[in-house]
Design a protein around this nucleic acid. Structure first.
Lengths: 208, 208
DNA sequence: GTCTATACACCGATAGAC
DNA sequence: GTCTATCGGTGTATAGAC
């Protein structure tokens, strides 16, 4: 239907800016930014569309022009954060040094990321949101993050799948306990190096 | 104020049954039982007082005669479950055998308990309920459970506080990953013995 | 004391006017 | 795209019947 009209215009093949789409994306980003701010202030689960609307200067119902549902907002936040984590882990992968150094860097970077923001940690790793299941697209970067962890472990000779599962459980346990029993502190965070030493010693003994 | 009245009655010192209190406690127990059933069916956070009222054959508002609020129901469930866990861990403590056997028994018993019921696990260990903070009374048995864990560790020569924190992180990580990524399965549960071996080897090397 | 009836304020979501 | 109006749901509170 629009094919002929476009072909008629000389500038059709040049990458024309879609101002409407740009504006829409900008508003979406603004809403997400406000959502993060509100989640940080009142808690992830306490986020309400009415508060969110107030924050961005529109009625709550108008948000539905930008997101299909509240869960869609959470989903976008989930994806956004996972992409940020993926970027950090890719930096680790591309860092010069020994495989062991990269493994350490990845472990510390991950824990630091997980302990930076409670709402983000709850959204990504702890299952705090009642009915929330991330969409496949939003989950995709998380799969890549796990793949990078597998690579870092393989680089230091740890390839058995069970050892990867143990590794994720170790990190998961540290961040869970840290947020649950000493939020903002470092009681479990500071044990990370000990846990890493424990894990590596065991992996060496098990020879994989 | 009632001191004199009681002293006036000859039968005051005999343990008289308070039928009213008995009936009240029975109804409270009935409500809690229904709450567990609903939590199991729809999820812990999806529990609503109206559904709960339907289940026990009263209007939702009447529940307030037995519990001050929805959180008070969660609090009673929290306490109930922690007392059950405490009982199990006390059985472990009183079991004949070597300290090492008791430690193993406690570890496996705890993980089994944590993986028996998602709602219970969320209520007790994962922080799934938005604003829920257990009351001191409800939390008391949890403190005793931790104390028993400390004892089991001390019996096998592990006394450093950091080693207790690592231990709780290990168990926490296993149950977190199991429920989050393989609910109902045993992908992480079956790694418990490996994790225990890893932990004990590290503790031995660290000599505490 | 325990129930019913009614209400309030909030929530996510939808329909339709402009 | 943003609004108003409205819906069915929630936890919570209170007044009053019995």
């Amino acid at each position: 239907m629009s094919g002929k009209a476009i072909a008629d215009r000389p500038e059709a093949e040049a990458p024309r800016r879609d101002r409407r789409a740009e504006r829409r994306d900008a508003t979406r980003a603004e809403i997400l930014e406000a959502a993060w701010a509100l989640a940080g202030e009142q808690g992830l689960t306490e986020l309400s569309l009415r508060d969110l609307g107030d924050r961005v200067g529109m009625r709550a119902q108008s948000i539905y022009s930008y997101f299909d549902s509240k869960h869609a907002i959470y989903d976008a936040m989930f994806q956004e954060s996972n992409e940020e984590l993926l970027r950090r882990m890719q930096v680790v992968r591309d860092t010069a040094g020994t495989p062991n150094e990269r493994f350490l860097l990845g472990a510390r970077g991950f824990v630091e990321f997980a302990l930076e923001d409670l709402s983000r940690c709850q959204l990504l790793f702890l299952r705090t949101l009642p009915g929330f299941e991330p969409s496949p697209e939003a989950y995709a970067p998380a799969v890549l993050v796990l793949e990078l962890a597998r690579e870092r472990l393989a680089e230091i000779g740890i390839t058995r799948p069970e050892m990867l599962d143990i590794w994720t459980a170790l990190l998961s346990g540290i961040m869970q306990q840290q947020w649950a029993n000493d939020p903002g502190g470092d009681r479990w965070k500071k044990l990370l190096d000990d846990v890493i030493a424990m894990y590596l010693a065991y992996a060496k003994k098990r020879k994989s």
